[in-house]
Design a protein around this nucleic acid. Sequence first.
DNA 1: CTTGACGTTTACGTCAACGTCAACTTACTC
DNA 2: GAGTAAGTTGACGTTGACGTAAACGTCAAG
Lengths: 133, 133
Amino acid sequence: MSAPANSIEPEFSITDLAQELDITTRTIRFYEDRGLLRPARRGQQRVYSRADRTRLKLVLRGKRLGWPLNDIREMIELYETPDGERRQLELMLARIEQSRATLLQQRDDIELALREFDEIELRCREQLTPHHE
Amino acid sequence: MSAPANSIEPEFSITDLAQELDITTRTIRFYEDRGLLRPARRGQQRVYSRADRTRLKLVLRGKRLGWPLNDIREMIELYETPDGERRQLELMLARIEQSRATLLQQRDDIELALREFDEIELRCREQLTPHHE
DNA sequence: CTTGACGTTTACGTCAACGTCAACTTACTC
DNA sequence: GAGTAAGTTGACGTTGACGTAAACGTCAAG
């Protein structure tokens, strides 16, 4: 896919992304070192495309879910495998299923916790507004 | 060696819990060291009540959600504050709100990821069963 | 030309969350 | 009473995820 002539593809510096996403440049470079990002280079300097930015956001989402970087990398790789052999695709499906299982477990945990918090809050509020008969 | 014959309240040894919850005894002791557990003692040995077991399960749920132990400890403390002064209760409500916000964010992240996985899987399956016109 | 902001790599430090011994004690069995 | 199984504390090692500092390059502004 070639870029349309008059559409400007935005570029980002490492500090742009760091500020926007509220992380340090050190962190971004570290993610690159761990194979989570592969920004282009203009000379020495890293140049991030919109796709790179999206990737980074995916990493941060993984982090919020408590996933280790290796798992996050695998997860992200799922997003970018365009096509492959049958064997590859089946392996990919298996990984998706694995990740999905984790996500579903996490979702269940969250639902439970939320309900329990509702109850705790209720009891808490009952204490705050003493019930007079 | 754990269940009393005319059992009213069940007791658990550290290995009981370790085996049941699939963690090591080292881990359980570590959690105690970090203030997440406070089992009773019979002499030197730790004796875990059903409540301790529940607590430990809460810890593991927190772990599955990727929370650090400190946060988990605070979260668990919410479960066990019986009653307090108005000031205390209000502080507690604030903490609940804080935890709830985190949980809701995590839930959103999960829902998004799940949907994206659905899409990826779909494209993946399309590749597997080639569409001939 | 120098200063300062921003970037780079390399190396080492740090903190959390455990694992891995080692060196016991206690309890039970043979 | 010797062995063994399960428990204890204490110290040190390890891994993951960055922080911090050193030493240097680049470029625009004063």
